[in-house]
């Protein structure tokens, strides 16, 4: 189960683990093809060329495999799609719930992933 975006998708929990182990900086947007999620995928698509040191991925929220994100302690109070998780060296450094603007996303990327 994957989303119909132009991003690289993560389909399984194992794939996510592999991705965060193999890449220093990872941003994963876990959502549906809805109005709060699509703008975030769009911003991620555009930021790919600007932040080459970050692996941008999406994951389908309704896939049972997405439990790896849904059940994160950092997402325990989240009640809005998408759940967007930022990993550095395999660890969660930031997590947001609901739609975020390009400025909000780049502020997080600059804070945690600037080289």
């Amino acid at each position: 189960m994957v989303l119909s975006t132009n991003l690289d998708h993560i389909a399984t929990a194992d794939e996510l683990t592999k991705t965060i182990n193999e890449n220093e900086n990872v941003m994963v947007c876990c959502g549906r093809m809805g109005p709060m999620c699509i703008p975030v995928y769009g911003v991620m698509e555009e930021l790919r060329s600007e932040y080459k040191n970050v692996a941008f991925r999406d994951m389908a929220f309704d896939s049972p495999e997405a439990g790896i994100i849904r059940n994160l302690p950092e997402a325990s109070n989240f009640m809005g799609l998408p759940f967007t998780i930022y990993y550095k060296n395999g660890k969660v450094v930031e997590a947001t719930s609901s739609i975020q603007s390009r400025d909000q996303i780049t502020a997080i990327l600059d804070e945690h992933f600037s080289s």
Binding site: G34, P35, M36, F78, M79, G80, S97, I99
Partner: peptide, 17 residues
């Protein structure tokens, strides 16, 4: 509280409630 209780989309977030 956006995404932590406040929402602007019922079809997106209704099932959290």
């Amino acid at each position: 509280f956006k995404g932590r209780g406040i929402s602007y989309c019922a079809t997106c977030d209704g099932d959290f409630f």
